[in-house]
Design a protein around this nucleic acid. Sequence first.
DNA 1: CCGAATCCGACGCGATACTG
DNA 2: CAGTATCGCGTCGGATTCGG
Lengths: 133, 133
Amino acid sequence: MGEPGTICGRRRCLGKEYSCSMELSLAVIGGKWKPLILWHLRETPTLRFSALRRTMPAITQKMLTQQLRELESDGLLTRTVFAEVPPRVEYALTDLGRGIIPILEALCRFGKEFEARFGVEAADAPAPAAAER
Amino acid sequence: MGEPGTICGRRRCLGKEYSCSMELSLAVIGGKWKPLILWHLRETPTLRFSALRRTMPAITQKMLTQQLRELESDGLLTRTVFAEVPPRVEYALTDLGRGIIPILEALCRFGKEFEARFGVEAADAPAPAAAER
DNA sequence: CCGAATCCGACGCGATACTG
DNA sequence: CAGTATCGCGTCGGATTCGG
């Protein structure tokens, strides 16, 4: 379909198996938290662990640590440890990581288009049948 | 961070809960199969179930049916049933669904960039420690 | 302050069998 | 041909506790 090589056999890169470059990207930026992390690092040179965590109140330390490590080993961000007390760890996007930002922005725009078409409501809405019309 | 409203409280749209428009998009095109399905419908006006299945040998009927139904109820594609025998069902992208294509293409490009940077190998490679170096 | 380790529930996804 | 129904595993993600 389309360009040769766009879709082909089963491959592996950085330990991830896939059949299409697109799948690889989703393996890298997919999941519940990675897009948010990259997004929050979008316009900030560096962010330390606790600051990053404050921007995502719902995430647990375990998940934040885990996702950060994966993003690091995928080369999307750098992790700098300062051997001092109290400990300090700073995270920053790499050039490769910055390449994801336009995609996230596109996803964001599409999401808004989606909301515009189907409507949005607060997640704690009392009853989905008590407004408008 | 950035534009007001870009990241805010917990919302709901089409039954999906999220805190960011980006998450909504990932809920819609994420997962193992949806990107592939949309991709295969990219340049084809319509595809019937069996044809679609032939393009993705690894998918099971159950998953294909399930993912197609979700994409339909999210308004990304249409499902047309022909009441004849043998039965025939055709799927086609909607305008909304076509809006996803540029994002998938961007994901595809990024995936290739990724491969170029880290290298690719066949998934059935005999041993990951018997080449180069 | 920044993690690692463990336990555990939820569900995405697959294999198989059956139906109009 | 194009589905449903049932079963079960493996992984994702959350709660909690411990360590440097």
